[in-house]
């Protein structure tokens, strides 16, 4: 019989717990960059969850989002809407990490993060329309974030700048020696579920 391998080792659990704890504290004290939406700031959870996903895989990222949600200004409503980003980043991260050229690594990381963030955003539009009633459809939020550029660019910087710097300067800390079963399918499922949710608030009928 093959010995069973744990999903996370001690180091990975520790890294996820510490980053999740830091994220919880950051949210609890409101340490974020102001000016995103009424009552919602540019929070730093993206930096924490990205580094945790790099070092400990999707479960690491998920642990961070759970701990963060205890003190997040959108509470546990936001929890599942981080996960498409976590899974998408994890899906491509090992390939990025194994690139020989530092420049290619950085470019690859920013590109994957930009796409992951774009995907993630739509689930949040659903949340802001369906739960928080910031608008009657998702489209004003889409225009504000993507056409207005600055909100998307700010979040992209939060999700990519520090984790990208860590990738280049502290590679042992974020070495991806984790495994996650059926990652491709789980990623696809999370994106499809998010798409269904956002389609329900697109006002297409």
């Amino acid at each position: 019989m093959m010995p069973r391998k744990p999903l996370l080792n001690t180091r990975q659990i520790s890294v996820a717990a510490v980053l999740g704890g830091l994220s919880l504290i950051t949210e609890a004290f409101g340490l974020s960059l102001p000016g995103y939406l009424p009552g919602v700031n540019f929070n730093l959870v993206g930096a924490y969850l990205s580094i945790a996903t790099m070092a400990a895989g999707p479960l690491g990222g998920i642990i961070v989002t759970i701990l963060d949600s205890f003190t997040s200004s959108v509470g546990f409503y936001g929890l599942p809407f981080y996960w498409p980003h976590v899974f998408f980043l994890a899906l491509f991260y090992k390939r990025i990490y194994s690139m020989k050229s530092t420049a290619m690594k950085v470019v690859g990381y920013w590109v994957v993060t930009a796409v992951a963030l774009f995907i993630q955003y739509w689930g949040w539009f659903f949340l802001y329309v369906y739960v928080f009633k910031f608008a009657t459809t998702i489209w004003p939020l889409a225009v504000y974030n993507f056409v207005g550029v600055i909100p998307y660019a700010t979040f992209l910087a939060i999700y990519a700048l520090i984790p990208g710097f860590v990738l280049v300067t502290a590679p042992n800390f974020v070495r991806p020696n984790w495994n996650f079963p059926y990652l491709k399918w789980v990623t696809a499922a999370s994106i499809i579920l998010s798409a269904i949710a956002v389609a329900s608030q697109a006002g297409l009928r």
Partner: peptide, 28 residues
């Protein structure tokens, strides 16, 4: 949970935007 625009678990804490940003930099 949803307590939009405020720190959920530190009741009454209202930091100005400069302090928020400085705190965020310290966390980074």
């Amino acid at each position: 949970s949803p307590c939009l625009g405020q720190a959920c678990y530190v009741p009454g804490l209202q930091l100005d935007s400069t302090t928020q940003t400085a705190g965020a930099i310290v966390m980074i």
